[in-house]
């Protein structure tokens, strides 16, 4: 175990090409998926927070439930869509990074919708009467709330990133864990552990933790800066 950890640090320190290729692809897939999920999920969350329409409660329950969507189920759904016999089969996206991005987007979007809806609903309760008295449009209200809730929504995006970066089932199913093509950190950790090659598995685990720490630290620093700005 000690040897594996020492070897992991060595791989990180020397900038092992194979290791960084996997890290790079992982970040590209997960960050793109989170960006797409935010693009879809934030306006939808805001609309669910402020609009009143038939079926809204059902939608809220559905998105809340989908936060717990098992990654393998998301993977299976995307697999069925992208497989040769599926409706999107002709696009030939299966076992590509694009398929992995789609699967992670499916996984993360409900998290972004449900959490952002809650954040924006709380703020809307406070702003509603003021904004309506100003004669604001629904679109204007959504944009105002999204902007004013931006720091809380960054935390929501972070939760989505955590989900995307840590999952293994969906990307394994639609990416296939192909070396130099679709191999990401989580699938590599699973593969190398099963092969008994613990050094690279531990190394990737450390990188994964380091990324999580860096992102959280950056967010906390940003929130701290905003907090100071409020009091100068």
């Amino acid at each position: 175990m000690g040897d594996a950890i020492a070897e992991a640090f060595r791989l990180i320190a020397v900038g092992d090409a194979a290791l960084w290729e996997i890290v790079s692809l992982s970040l590209r897939v997960s960050l793109t998926a989170v960006a797409l999920a935010c693009l879809l999920g934030l306006p939808l969350g805001a609309l669910l927070a402020i609009a009143r329409f038939p079926g809204r409660s059902v939608l809220i329950v559905a998105t809340n439930s989908l936060m717990g969507l098992p990654p393998v189920l998301a993977g299976l759904l995307v697999y069925l869509l992208l497989s040769r016999a599926g409706p999107l089969g002709p696009l030939e996206l299966l076992y590509t990074p694009t398929a992995m991005i789609i699967a992670q987007t499916v996984l993360v979007t409900p998290i972004i919708v449900a959490l952002s809806r809650q954040v924006i609903a709380d703020m809307h309760q406070e702003y509603d009467e003021q904004l309506r008295s100003m004669g604001i449009t629904t679109t204007g209200a959504v944009l105002t709330l999204l902007y004013d809730a931006r720091l809380s929504l960054l935390t929501v995006a972070l939760a989505g990133f955590g989900r995307a970066a840590a999952e293994v089932g969906a990307v394994m199913m639609v990416g296939g864990n192909i070396n130099h093509v679709t191999r990401v950190m989580t699938t590599t950790i699973a593969l190398e552990t099963s092969k008994g090659n613990l050094a690279i598995a531990v190394g990737l685990g450390l990188v994964l933790m380091l990324i999580a720490l860096t992102v959280n630290g950056a967010l906390m620093a940003l929130r701290g800066t905003q907090g100071v700005a409020r009091h100068v």
């Binding site: 406070e126 702003y127 009467e129 003021q130 008295s133 100003m134 004669g135 604001i136 204007g140 105002t144 004013d148």
Partner: peptide
């Protein structure tokens, strides 16, 4: 103008800029 002012989580100037845009 409400009894308890509801101001946006922005600067004084940004609150006014927002209102000018909305209006």
């Amino acid at each position: 103008v409400f009894q308890r002012p509801v101001l946006l989580r922005r600067s004084v100037a940004a609150n006014l800029r927002h209102a000018l845009k909305i209006y």
